[in-house]
Design a protein around this nucleic acid. Structure first.
Lengths: 227, 227
DNA sequence: CCCGGGCGTCAGGGTTGCGTCAAAGACGGC
DNA sequence: GCCGTCTTTGACGCAACCCTGACGCCCGGG
């Protein structure tokens, strides 16, 4: 869940933001002054900060600098001031976006999404989807199968078939659905393809291919993958 | 030097932007329609894109999608339309910022600086830039490859290909993804390029190029870099 | 007991995809 | 304007993959 820190001294604005954000499944913390905000940011490590520049205890730009001293968290600035200098100062201090009041809630939320999105990890992120059984491991993101300490080589068709089955772990997948997903929409009756490729998958992955534990045949209906 | 791609069909706006950007030591490319823009982006790999939504040949949002299909380059949208829906659509399509015309040049430049700044690589991941194998070392930050005590000379295309593979160490990278990341979004089927350049990388980096240990072919699917 | 449908297995042949080499084309520097 | 480097393109041999048909097995029904 994405965590947002809202910093504003006007209660009605805070309330409106909190309600809208919570309704969209964000986790929200709120602060009414700069000192509290910096403490909260350090304690809670928000994924994005919404900051009103007009705070009672310190200059908004100082809050930005305070945050930028140790974090690159996206900062979205709110301000009643339209002057170009204000914007430039805030942005150059390290803010990521600047919205002038009064603002549209839709637009603010869209800018928030944009800020969160680009802070997401890039290709370096290890968001691999791992499916493990007692005999082998399937990594859907890396397109890798591991068994007995070594990688198993699968052909494109074998992979495609395995992928469909694994994404439906525990569920029955009909022969027609398998054929259409792997071989294309114009296929649907060539069940012999399935028999051949199922045998190859079992030979490569099952401990005892003739008595499969994971790739299970449902006669007349389809196949099922079980962990 | 930071490279900017300006996309706008109004000559006076383009001229104003180009003059201001060049004066601040940016390298500037300009396009006045979407098709040219996408080509230029692929060819020049800008560090930031300034995009006017009102183009003669295609919808601005389509340009955003065309870029987002293969790159995370910051996109700063210009538009004469103030409506909230327009902004939300552009931002959710992948834009990073949205500025309505008429705009102040100071503000635009500040937003541009903010967009470029946050796209910069994080200072923290120092150990990520060095990738070592038993035969050679890749330094992603310094753009250098070391082997047997000396630097290996790579052409720009070779380096780009290596970079994509190394950033996805252990993961399979599809032929289409490689082609689009290295040669641009309009490529995707020219697998002969890959064959030629993979052979060159292997010749320069593998101990035994005909039996590669690190640059592994997954027939019909793509390539994989392993340490 | 025989028969038929559905499934698993195996092996051969057409086709596709990959690696390699070489040469032409594009680009930039001197 | 010439030359060297990098990129693109084409051709060829070879290996791997995909499809196909044949056969045997199991099981339920006639």
């Amino acid at each position: 869940m994405t965590r947002v820190l809202v910093i504003d001294d006007e209660p009605q604005i805070v309330r409106a933001l909190v309600i809208n954000l919570r309704a969209r499944k964000y986790e929200v913390d709120a602060a009414h002054d700069g000192a509290t905000a910096l403490q909260l940011a350090a304690a809670r490590h928000p994924d994005v900060v919404v900051l009103d520049l007009g705070l009672p205890d310190m200059d908004g730009v100082e809050v930005i600098r305070g945050l930028r001293g140790w974090t690159r968290v996206p900062i979205l600035v709110l301000s009643a001031r339209h002057s170009s200098d204000e914007k430039v100062e805030a942005l150059d201090a390290g803010a990521d976006d600047y919205v002038t009041k009064p603002f549209g809630m839709d637009e603010l939320l869209a800018r928030l999404r944009a800020a969160v999105r680009r802070a997401e990890p890039t290709g370096g992120g290890e968001d691999d989807v791992l499916v493990e059984t007692d005999g082998f491991t399937v990594d859907l993101a890396a397109k890798k199968v591991h068994r007995d300490g070594r990688d198993v080589r699968l052909t494109p068709t074998e992979w495609h078939l395995l992928e469909v089955l694994v994404r439906n772990t525990g569920r029955l997948v009909s022969q027609k659905q398998l054929l259409q997903e792997v071989w294309g929409p114009s296929y649907g009756t060539e069940t012999n393809y399935l028999r051949v490729y199922m045998a190859q998958l079992r030979r490569k992955l099952e401990a005892d291919p003739s008595h499969p534990k994971h790739f299970i045949t449902e006669p007349g209906m389809g196949y099922r993958f079980e962990k």
